[in-house]
Protein backbone atom coordinates (compact mmCIF):
# COMPACT_ATOMS: atom_id res chain seq x y z
CA UNK A 1 0.00 0.00 0.00
CA UNK A 2 1.43 3.40 -0.86
CA UNK A 3 1.65 6.03 1.81
CA UNK A 4 2.05 9.76 1.61
CA UNK A 5 1.55 13.20 3.04
CA UNK A 6 -2.12 14.19 3.02
CA UNK A 7 -1.60 17.57 4.63
CA UNK A 8 0.96 19.65 6.50
CA UNK A 9 1.02 22.66 8.74
CA UNK A 10 3.72 24.81 10.26
CA UNK A 11 3.87 27.24 13.16
CA UNK A 12 6.58 29.74 14.08
CA UNK A 13 6.31 32.16 17.03
CA UNK A 14 6.45 35.79 15.94
CA UNK A 15 9.40 36.86 18.10
CA UNK A 16 13.02 36.94 16.93
CA UNK A 17 16.36 37.77 18.45
CA UNK A 18 19.30 38.70 16.25
CA UNK A 19 22.59 36.90 16.62
CA UNK A 20 24.26 40.28 17.23
CA UNK A 21 22.05 40.89 20.28
CA UNK A 22 23.13 37.60 21.82
CA UNK A 23 26.76 38.16 20.83
CA UNK A 24 26.78 41.55 22.54
CA UNK A 25 25.96 39.92 25.90
CA UNK A 26 28.81 37.43 25.66
CA UNK A 27 31.39 39.60 23.94
CA UNK A 28 31.40 37.48 20.80
CA UNK A 29 31.90 38.82 17.28
CA UNK A 30 28.47 38.66 15.67
CA UNK A 31 29.73 39.03 12.10
CA UNK A 32 32.12 36.14 12.41
CA UNK A 33 29.48 34.04 14.15
CA UNK A 34 26.76 34.77 11.60
CA UNK A 35 29.07 34.11 8.70
CA UNK A 36 30.28 30.88 10.25
CA UNK A 37 26.85 29.58 11.27
CA UNK A 38 24.94 31.16 8.39
CA UNK A 39 22.31 32.10 10.99
CA UNK A 40 21.29 35.76 11.45
CA UNK A 41 18.34 35.54 13.81
CA UNK A 42 16.24 32.93 15.55
CA UNK A 43 12.65 32.55 16.66
CA UNK A 44 11.68 32.93 20.31
CA UNK A 45 8.45 31.64 21.86
CA UNK A 46 5.96 33.95 23.55
CA UNK A 47 5.74 33.80 27.34
CA UNK A 48 2.76 31.48 27.12
CA UNK A 49 4.02 29.27 24.30
CA UNK A 50 5.70 25.91 24.68
CA UNK A 51 6.10 22.73 22.66
CA UNK A 52 2.50 21.73 23.28
CA UNK A 53 1.00 25.03 22.12
CA UNK A 54 3.28 25.09 19.07
CA UNK A 55 2.40 21.47 18.26
CA UNK A 56 -1.32 22.30 18.52
CA UNK A 57 -1.00 25.30 16.22
CA UNK A 58 0.94 23.25 13.65
CA UNK A 59 -1.56 20.40 13.96
CA UNK A 60 -4.54 22.72 13.48
CA UNK A 61 -2.88 24.26 10.45
CA UNK A 62 -2.45 20.79 8.92
CA UNK A 63 -6.05 19.80 9.69
CA UNK A 64 -7.50 22.99 8.21
CA UNK A 65 -5.18 23.07 5.15
CA UNK A 66 -6.83 19.95 3.70
CA UNK A 67 -10.10 20.23 5.63
CA UNK A 68 -9.41 16.93 7.38
CA UNK A 69 -12.03 15.29 9.58
CA UNK A 70 -9.91 14.98 12.73
CA UNK A 71 -11.87 11.92 13.85
CA UNK A 72 -10.14 10.03 11.01
CA UNK A 73 -6.77 10.53 12.67
CA UNK A 74 -5.94 7.26 14.40
CA UNK A 75 -2.51 8.18 15.74
CA UNK A 76 -0.89 11.36 17.03
CA UNK A 77 2.84 11.25 17.66
CA UNK A 78 4.70 14.34 18.77
CA UNK A 79 8.46 14.41 18.49
CA UNK A 80 10.34 16.89 20.66
CA UNK A 81 13.33 17.28 22.93
CA UNK A 82 11.44 19.90 24.98
CA UNK A 83 8.15 18.24 25.89
CA UNK A 84 6.58 20.36 28.66
CA UNK A 85 6.19 17.35 30.92
CA UNK A 86 8.84 14.73 31.62
CA UNK A 87 5.95 12.31 32.16
CA UNK A 88 2.57 13.07 30.54
CA UNK A 89 2.20 13.16 26.81
CA UNK A 90 2.17 16.26 24.66
CA UNK A 91 0.32 14.23 22.05
CA UNK A 92 -2.82 13.85 24.18
CA UNK A 93 -3.01 17.64 24.43
CA UNK A 94 -2.72 17.90 20.66
CA UNK A 95 -5.25 15.13 20.05
CA UNK A 96 -7.79 16.74 22.40
CA UNK A 97 -7.23 20.21 20.94
CA UNK A 98 -7.83 19.06 17.36
CA UNK A 99 -10.79 16.96 18.58
CA UNK A 100 -9.35 13.67 17.39
CA UNK A 101 -10.02 11.98 20.76
CA UNK A 102 -10.82 9.40 22.00
CA UNK A 103 -10.57 6.69 19.32
CA UNK A 104 -6.86 6.95 18.57
CA UNK A 105 -3.42 6.05 19.82
CA UNK A 106 -0.95 8.68 20.91
CA UNK A 107 2.59 8.88 22.22
CA UNK A 108 5.50 11.24 22.45
CA UNK A 109 8.76 10.68 20.62
CA UNK A 110 12.25 11.81 21.55
CA UNK A 111 15.31 11.49 19.33
CA UNK A 112 16.96 14.91 19.63
CA UNK A 113 16.30 16.71 16.33
CA UNK A 114 14.79 13.82 14.41
CA UNK A 115 11.96 12.81 16.75
CA UNK A 116 9.46 14.32 14.31
CA UNK A 117 10.66 12.30 11.32
CA UNK A 118 10.77 9.17 13.50
CA UNK A 119 7.11 9.89 14.23
CA UNK A 120 6.49 10.19 10.46
CA UNK A 121 7.99 6.74 9.94
CA UNK A 122 5.81 5.30 12.71
CA UNK A 123 2.76 6.83 11.04
CA UNK A 124 3.86 5.39 7.69
CA UNK A 125 3.89 1.95 9.24
CA UNK A 126 0.47 2.37 10.81
CA UNK A 127 -1.28 3.73 7.73
CA UNK A 128 0.69 1.48 5.39
CA UNK A 129 -0.45 -1.59 7.26
CA UNK A 130 -4.00 -0.29 7.40
CA UNK A 131 -3.99 -0.15 11.19
CA UNK A 132 -5.15 3.46 11.09
CA UNK A 133 -6.73 5.68 8.46
CA UNK A 134 -4.63 8.79 9.03
CA UNK A 135 -1.64 9.40 11.28
CA UNK A 136 -0.35 12.73 12.51
CA UNK A 137 3.38 13.23 13.04
CA UNK A 138 4.59 16.43 14.67
CA UNK A 139 8.04 17.80 15.23
CA UNK A 140 8.01 20.76 17.63
CA UNK A 141 10.46 22.33 20.00
CA UNK A 142 11.21 25.30 22.19
CA UNK A 143 14.81 24.24 22.33
CA UNK A 144 17.15 25.50 25.00
CA UNK A 145 20.74 26.65 24.71
CA UNK A 146 22.61 27.38 27.92
CA UNK A 147 23.38 31.07 28.32
CA UNK A 148 26.68 31.77 26.57
CA UNK A 149 26.83 28.35 24.92
CA UNK A 150 27.24 28.15 21.15
CA UNK A 151 23.77 26.58 20.94
CA UNK A 152 22.21 29.77 22.29
CA UNK A 153 22.79 31.42 18.90
CA UNK A 154 20.63 28.91 17.07
CA UNK A 155 18.22 27.13 19.48
CA UNK A 156 14.83 28.30 18.20
CA UNK A 157 11.13 27.57 18.48
CA UNK A 158 8.72 26.19 15.93
CA UNK A 159 6.84 23.14 14.85
CA UNK A 160 5.51 21.25 11.86
CA UNK A 161 2.77 18.66 11.53
CA UNK A 162 2.34 16.12 8.74
CA UNK A 163 -0.79 14.09 8.26
CA UNK A 164 0.14 10.74 6.73
CA UNK A 165 -2.41 8.68 4.86
CA UNK A 166 -2.76 5.71 2.53
CA UNK A 167 -5.30 6.96 -0.04
CA UNK A 168 -3.37 8.10 -3.06
CA UNK A 169 -6.28 10.30 -4.18
CA UNK A 170 -5.86 12.57 -1.18
CA UNK A 171 -2.06 12.63 -0.98
CA UNK A 172 -0.24 15.85 -1.80
CA UNK A 173 3.05 13.95 -1.85
CA UNK A 174 3.69 10.24 -2.08
CA UNK A 175 6.42 8.98 0.25
CA UNK A 176 8.31 6.81 -2.18
CA UNK A 177 10.58 5.30 0.43
CA UNK A 178 12.43 5.93 3.67
CA UNK A 179 15.70 4.70 5.12
CA UNK A 180 17.28 5.22 8.52
CA UNK A 181 20.87 5.03 9.69
CA UNK A 182 21.37 4.71 13.44
CA UNK A 183 24.31 4.19 15.82
CA UNK A 184 24.95 4.92 19.47
CA UNK A 185 26.91 8.15 19.21
CA UNK A 186 26.80 10.50 22.23
CA UNK A 187 27.28 13.82 20.47
CA UNK A 188 24.55 15.72 22.36
CA UNK A 189 22.35 14.93 25.35
CA UNK A 190 20.35 16.34 28.22
CA UNK A 191 20.10 14.45 31.48
CA UNK A 192 16.79 14.08 33.33
CA UNK A 193 15.94 17.24 35.27
CA UNK A 194 18.64 19.37 33.66
CA UNK A 195 17.53 22.60 32.01
CA UNK A 196 20.15 22.77 29.27
CA UNK A 197 21.70 20.16 26.98
CA UNK A 198 25.37 19.24 26.81
CA UNK A 199 27.18 18.56 23.58
CA UNK A 200 30.47 17.21 22.32
CA UNK A 201 31.53 20.43 20.62
CA UNK A 202 33.22 19.61 17.32
CA UNK A 203 32.44 15.94 17.96
CA UNK A 204 28.86 16.70 16.92
CA UNK A 205 30.05 17.33 13.35
CA UNK A 206 31.97 14.57 11.65
CA UNK A 207 31.03 11.46 13.70
CA UNK A 208 27.58 12.91 14.43
CA UNK A 209 25.83 14.96 11.78
CA UNK A 210 27.85 14.16 8.68
CA UNK A 211 28.25 10.42 9.23
CA UNK A 212 24.55 9.87 9.91
CA UNK A 213 23.13 12.22 7.30
CA UNK A 214 25.31 10.80 4.56
CA UNK A 215 24.71 7.28 5.87
CA UNK A 216 20.95 7.66 5.67
CA UNK A 217 20.94 9.63 2.42
CA UNK A 218 23.25 7.29 0.57
CA UNK A 219 21.44 4.31 2.02
CA UNK A 220 18.11 5.51 0.65
CA UNK A 221 19.43 6.42 -2.79
CA UNK A 222 21.16 3.05 -2.97
CA UNK A 223 17.98 1.25 -1.90
CA UNK A 224 15.88 3.15 -4.44
CA UNK A 225 18.47 3.33 -7.20
CA UNK A 226 18.18 7.13 -7.35
CA UNK A 227 20.81 9.84 -7.57
CA UNK A 228 20.81 13.53 -6.54
CA UNK A 229 20.01 14.71 -10.05
CA UNK A 230 16.73 12.73 -9.94
CA UNK A 231 15.42 15.24 -7.40
CA UNK A 232 14.10 18.75 -7.86
CA UNK A 233 14.65 19.68 -4.22
CA UNK A 234 16.61 18.48 -1.22
CA UNK A 235 16.26 19.22 2.48
CA UNK A 236 18.74 18.36 5.24
CA UNK A 237 18.54 18.86 8.96
CA UNK A 238 19.62 22.42 9.55
CA UNK A 239 21.17 23.09 12.97
CA UNK A 240 22.78 26.04 11.19
CA UNK A 241 23.18 27.04 7.57
CA UNK A 242 26.65 25.61 7.16
CA UNK A 243 26.04 21.91 7.90
CA UNK A 244 23.20 21.31 5.40
CA UNK A 245 25.05 23.27 2.71
CA UNK A 246 28.16 21.20 3.23
CA UNK A 247 26.41 17.86 3.42
CA UNK A 248 24.44 18.66 0.28
CA UNK A 249 27.69 19.29 -1.55
CA UNK A 250 29.24 16.09 -0.14
CA UNK A 251 26.25 14.10 -1.42
CA UNK A 252 26.18 15.78 -4.82
CA UNK A 253 23.13 18.05 -4.41
CA UNK A 254 23.28 21.61 -5.70
CA UNK A 255 22.69 24.91 -3.91
CA UNK A 256 19.56 25.43 -6.00
CA UNK A 257 18.08 22.12 -4.85
CA UNK A 258 18.40 22.98 -1.16
CA UNK A 259 17.55 26.67 -1.42
CA UNK A 260 13.74 26.60 -0.89
CA UNK A 261 14.03 24.35 2.15
CA UNK A 262 16.94 26.15 3.81
CA UNK A 263 15.00 28.24 6.32
CA UNK A 264 17.53 28.24 9.16
CA UNK A 265 19.27 31.60 8.48
CA UNK A 266 16.19 33.62 9.54
CA UNK A 267 14.60 31.05 11.87
CA UNK A 268 17.33 29.18 13.73
CA UNK A 269 17.27 25.52 14.57
CA UNK A 270 13.78 24.33 15.44
CA UNK A 271 15.22 20.93 16.42
CA UNK A 272 12.48 18.33 15.95
CA UNK A 273 10.83 20.78 13.58
CA UNK A 274 13.99 21.60 11.64
CA UNK A 275 14.05 19.18 8.71
CA UNK A 276 10.25 19.04 8.63
CA UNK A 277 10.15 22.86 8.37
CA UNK A 278 12.45 22.57 5.36
CA UNK A 279 10.14 19.96 3.79
CA UNK A 280 7.11 22.16 4.49
CA UNK A 281 8.81 25.21 2.96
CA UNK A 282 9.66 23.11 -0.11
CA UNK A 283 6.10 21.78 -0.44
CA UNK A 284 4.97 25.42 -0.26
CA UNK A 285 6.46 25.97 -3.70
CA UNK A 286 6.81 22.52 -5.28
CA UNK A 287 4.85 21.66 -8.42
CA UNK A 288 3.01 18.43 -9.21
CA UNK A 289 5.52 15.78 -10.27
CA UNK A 290 8.46 17.34 -8.39
CA UNK A 291 10.60 14.98 -6.36
CA UNK A 292 11.95 16.00 -2.95
CA UNK A 293 14.79 14.33 -1.09
CA UNK A 294 15.04 14.91 2.66
CA UNK A 295 17.26 13.71 5.48
CA UNK A 296 16.75 14.50 9.13
CA UNK A 297 19.43 14.11 11.76
CA UNK A 298 19.04 13.44 15.44
CA UNK A 299 21.90 13.45 17.90
CA UNK A 300 22.54 10.28 19.70
CA UNK A 301 22.55 9.56 16.72
CA UNK A 302 20.68 8.77 13.56
CA UNK A 303 19.51 9.95 10.18
CA UNK A 304 16.07 9.47 8.57
CA UNK A 305 16.01 9.87 4.78
CA UNK A 306 12.84 10.25 2.69
CA UNK A 307 11.98 10.44 -0.95
CA UNK A 308 8.79 12.31 -1.88
CA UNK A 309 6.95 12.69 -5.17
CA UNK A 310 4.58 15.66 -5.23
CA UNK A 311 1.11 14.98 -6.69
CA UNK A 312 -1.46 17.11 -8.53
CA UNK A 313 -3.35 17.50 -5.26
CA UNK A 314 -0.75 19.98 -3.96
CA UNK A 315 -2.22 22.82 -6.00
CA UNK A 316 -5.62 22.33 -4.35
CA UNK A 317 -4.52 22.47 -0.73
CA UNK A 318 -1.28 24.42 -0.58
CA UNK A 319 -2.77 27.88 -0.18
CA UNK A 320 -5.32 26.97 2.49
CA UNK A 321 -2.93 27.51 5.41
CA UNK A 322 -0.02 29.86 6.12
CA UNK A 323 3.19 29.02 4.26
CA UNK A 324 6.54 28.90 6.04
CA UNK A 325 7.77 32.09 4.36
CA UNK A 326 4.57 33.85 5.49
CA UNK A 327 5.18 32.68 9.05
CA UNK A 328 8.71 34.08 8.85
CA UNK A 329 7.47 37.50 7.70
CA UNK A 330 7.05 40.57 9.93
CA UNK A 331 8.78 39.28 13.05
CA UNK A 332 8.86 41.19 16.33
CA UNK A 333 12.45 41.67 17.47
CA UNK A 334 13.44 41.55 21.10
CA UNK A 335 16.58 42.34 23.04
CA UNK A 336 18.44 39.84 25.19
CA UNK A 337 16.65 40.92 28.38
CA UNK A 338 13.21 40.22 26.93
CA UNK A 339 14.57 37.05 25.35
CA UNK A 340 15.82 35.91 28.76
CA UNK A 341 12.36 36.56 30.20
CA UNK A 342 10.63 34.67 27.39
CA UNK A 343 12.97 31.72 27.74
CA UNK A 344 12.51 31.42 31.48
CA UNK A 345 16.09 32.44 32.15
CA UNK A 346 14.71 35.03 34.58
CA UNK A 347 13.05 33.35 37.52
CA UNK A 348 10.76 35.08 39.98
CA UNK A 349 11.06 32.45 42.66
Amino acid sequence: MSVGIVSYGAYIPKFRIKVEDIARVWGDDADILSAGLMVYEKSVPDLDEDTATIAVEAARSAVSRHNIDAKRIGAVYTGSESHPYAVKPTSTIVAEAIEATPALTAADFEFACKAGTAAMQACMGLVGSGMVDLGMAIGADVSQGAPGDALEYTAAAGGVSFIIGNKESEMIAVIEDTFSFTTDTPDFWRREGMPYPEHGGRFTGEPGYFKHVTGAANGLMEKMGTKPSDYDYAVFHQPNGKFPSRVAKMLGFTKEQIKPGLVVPWLGNTYSGSCMMGIAATLDQAKPGDRIFATAFGSGAGGDAFSFRVTDKIDEVRDAAPKVQELLKDPVYMDYAMYAKHKGKIRLA
Binding site: D46, D48, E49, D50, A52, T53, V56, E57, R60, P84, Y85, A97
Partner: peptide, 14 residues
Protein backbone atom coordinates in the same frame (compact mmCIF):
# COMPACT_ATOMS: atom_id res chain seq x y z
CA UNK B 1 -4.90 30.82 19.54
CA UNK B 2 -3.83 27.89 21.70
CA UNK B 3 -1.71 29.02 24.65
CA UNK B 4 -0.69 28.20 28.19
CA UNK B 5 -3.22 29.70 30.58
CA UNK B 6 -1.13 29.04 33.65
CA UNK B 7 0.57 26.42 35.72
CA UNK B 8 0.58 25.20 39.30
CA UNK B 9 4.15 26.12 40.13
CA UNK B 10 7.10 24.11 38.84
CA UNK B 11 5.72 20.74 39.87
CA UNK B 12 2.02 21.03 39.14
CA UNK B 13 -0.16 20.85 36.07
CA UNK B 14 0.23 23.15 33.11
Amino acid sequence: VFRKLGESGDKGMI
